[in-house]
Every structure is written in structure tokens, then in C-alpha cells.
């Protein structure tokens, strides 16, 4: 497929996955802070850190307002300059869809338009002001619908695989970020927490849509260590770091097998290394470093994909027969 279009497919799904994940995060946090007596600073501000928006947010918002629920939620929902706000993610998802209309399905396009129209025009604003939980749910569900329609309406092939690749890498990234923030507020998982800490770990499970899966696999009392382990290393869990990376690796292998042998080499190598790392990493005191490594390396992989597949510059060299 056309290189640029492959890039748009990849980014379409990264943004969808991101919007889905941020909407879920905001939603879970709302109910979580009602249950648990945590300090004001731990209630909403961590959301900004999860999303990697600390620098931009702090530069824009004065210290006295940074812990205000509405300020944080407004920022992560509506801010036009933040690349992770729901509005931005959906805007860019739709822009990428607009440039790939000839490869995505009508079903995907209409559903994405629906959720974008909801955010863009008055209906979303009204819902946000009157029933915020329903607003976040509507966005999460809208993204889920498009993600599901992707699997149920597209032909197997390169466009679908590039979408999956974007989705899985973004997912690995999001899960790593969410875990990392818990690390900031809770310290390393120990295996024996206070009830408040356990509630926080539970909220993390919900944010990752992994609570029910965890309870099925973990019959004992929930604790931080097993939850962190589950979210990083459980290969069967679609949103775990390793699970996402394994799915990304399978997808990239298919793309490589069908394509020019010179393309995708660097990305594959980096992804293999990251998979091995995620499998073996010790999750105790070094959890933060491990998660930072995952976040940095997904960026490395994306840069390699960009160079080989999405924005290859000059392809003249590939015209000559290989020496």
C-alpha cells in the first residue's frame, strides 16, 4: 500500500486507542476518588502525569488550580493544544481517517464521524456538563465500536495490519504509563498494602479494563505485586504490556513477510528486544525504570517504522536489484 496511507492507518488507530484509554481512565478515576480517602493532590493530578502532559499542563495552569477536578478533566477532554486530550485524539483520528477513506470501511467512517460530531458540536458539551460519566462512556464506546468494526469489516492485509500495529504499540504504551503513575503515588508494589493502596491498585485494573480478567486468574487476595505482574507480563491479557507487544510483533512479522526484505528490519529488531525485556524484567524496585524503558522503546520502534514504511523519503535505491 501507499507508504503515507500506511502511516495514516497506523496513526488512526493510535489516536483511537489513546482516546479510548484516556476516556476510560477519566471515567474510572471519577468513581475511584469517591471511594478512597486520598489527598487532594493524588486525586486528579496523576491523570496529567499518566498522559505525559505534566510539563505543558504546569506551564499553563497555576499551582493552586492544578488539583482541581474540573481543571484537570477540562484539560484532558477539550484542550486543543494537548495531543492527548479526547478532542485532539478524536480530531486527529478523524483527520487520519479522512485521508484513508479509500481503505477504511464505511462502517468505521460513519461511527468515527458520529463520535467526532458528538464531541465537536453542542451535544457532547451538554452531556459533559450534565452527566460526565455518560460522556466519557459514550466516547469510550464510540472508539471501541470503530476498533471492533476494524476487525469485523476490513480485509486481512496490509491496511488492517498497520492499524493493528498502531493500536498494539499505543496500548503497550498506555498500560505502561498507567502503571508508572501508580508507582509515583504508591511506590513499588510490595505484596502487602493498606486498604487504600489496594483500592488504588484495583482502580488501575479497571482503567486497563483488566479487573475481571485479573480476578479470574488470581484467586488470592489482590495485591500490588501480582497486579503489576499481571499488567506487564500476562501474555493472554490483551492490554498487558507483553500481550500488546507480542501482538504487535506478530503483526509486524506478517507485514515484513509480504514486503520488501530491506524494510522493517530495524523496527523488528527493536521490537524483539523489547518483548524479551518485558518478559524478563524484574518488577520490584526498578518498576519505574522498566516502564520508562518500554515507553522510550515504543518510540524508537515508531521512528523506525516511520523511516521505513510511512515516510521513506527516496525509494530510488530500492529500484536497483539487490547486490
Amino acid at each position: 500500500m501507499i507508504s503515507r496511507v500506511a502511516g495514516s492507518c497506523f496513526w488512526l488507530h493510535r489516536y483511537l486507542e489513546r482516546a479510548q484509554s484516556v476516556a476510560q481512565l477519566l471515567r474510572v478515576n471519577r468513581s475511584f476518588v469517591l471511594d478512597v480517602p486520598v489527598d487532594e493532590i493524588e486525586k486528579h493530578y496523576p491523570l496529567i502525569i499518566v498522559c505525559g502532559e505534566q510539563a505543558r499542563f504546569d506551564a499553563r495552569v497555576e499551582p493552586s488550580l492544578r488539583h482541581d477536578r474540573d481543571v484537570v478533566e477540562d484539560y484532558l477532554t477539550w484542550d486543543g493544544e494537548s495531543p492527548v486530550s479526547l478532542r485532539s485524539s478524536l480530531y486527529w483520528a478523524r483527520e487520519n481517517a479522512r485521508t484513508t477513506r479509500e481503505v477504511i470501511s464505511l462502517e468505521m467512517w460513519e461511527s468515527l464521524n458520529d463520535v467526532w460530531t458528538f464531541v465537536r458540536f453542542g451535544a457532547g458539551r451538554r452531556k459533559y456538563n450534565t452527566d460526565r460519566d455518560a460522556f466519557f462512556k459514550r466516547i469510550k464506546d464510540g472508539c471501541d465500536l470503530v476498533l471492533g468494526q476494524t476487525e469485523s469489516t476490513l480485509l486481512e492485509g496490509e491496511p488492517l495490519d498497520f492499524m493493528r500495529l498502531g493500536r498494539f504499540l499505543e496500548r503497550a504504551n498506555q498500560t505502561a504509563r498507567m502503571l508508572d503513575v501508580k508507582h509515583h503515588t504508591l511506590g513499588p508494589p510490595r505484596g502487602a498494602e493498606t486498604p487504600v493502596e489496594t483500592a488504588q491498585w484495583n482502580a488501575l485494573l479497571y482503567s486497563c479494563g483488566a479487573a475481571e480478567a485479573y480476578h479470574k486468574r488470581w484467586p488470592a487476595r489482590p495485591d500490588g505485586r501480582s497486579i503489576a505482574d499481571f499488567l506487564v507480563k500476562e501474555p493472554d491479557l490483551p492490554r498487558s504490556v507483553l500481550g500488546s507487544l507480542l501482538r504487535a510483533r506478530d503483526t509486524l512479522a506478517r507485514i515484513r513477510a509480504a514486503g520488501h526484505p530491506a524494510l522493517g528490519v530495524a523496527a523488528e529488531r527493536a521490537l524483539d528486544a523489547l518483548v524479551a525485556h518485558a518478559r524478563e524484567a524484574p518488577l520490584g524496585a526498578a518498576l519505574h525504570e522498566e516502564l520508562t524503558h518500554v515507553i522510550d522503546e515504543t518510540t524508537t520502534i515508531c521512528v523506525a517504522l516511520e523511516r521505513d514504511y510511512f515516510d521513506p523519503g527516496d525509494q530510488r535505491a530500492l529500484l536497483e536489484p539487490a547486490p
Partner: peptide
């Protein structure tokens, strides 16, 4: 930017090469 010309022939850049 998806197209380029080589020896007066037009090519499109794809994920499988030109």
C-alpha cells in the same frame, strides 16, 4: 510526495517498495 520520477518514469512509494 507519494510519487517520484526516475528515468522519466513515474513510481509510487509503497510499503513494499516503488
Amino acid at each position: 510526495s507519494d510519487l517520484f520520477v526516475h528515468d522519466d518514469r513515474v513510481y509510487v512509494k509503497t510499503t513494499r517498495g516503488p
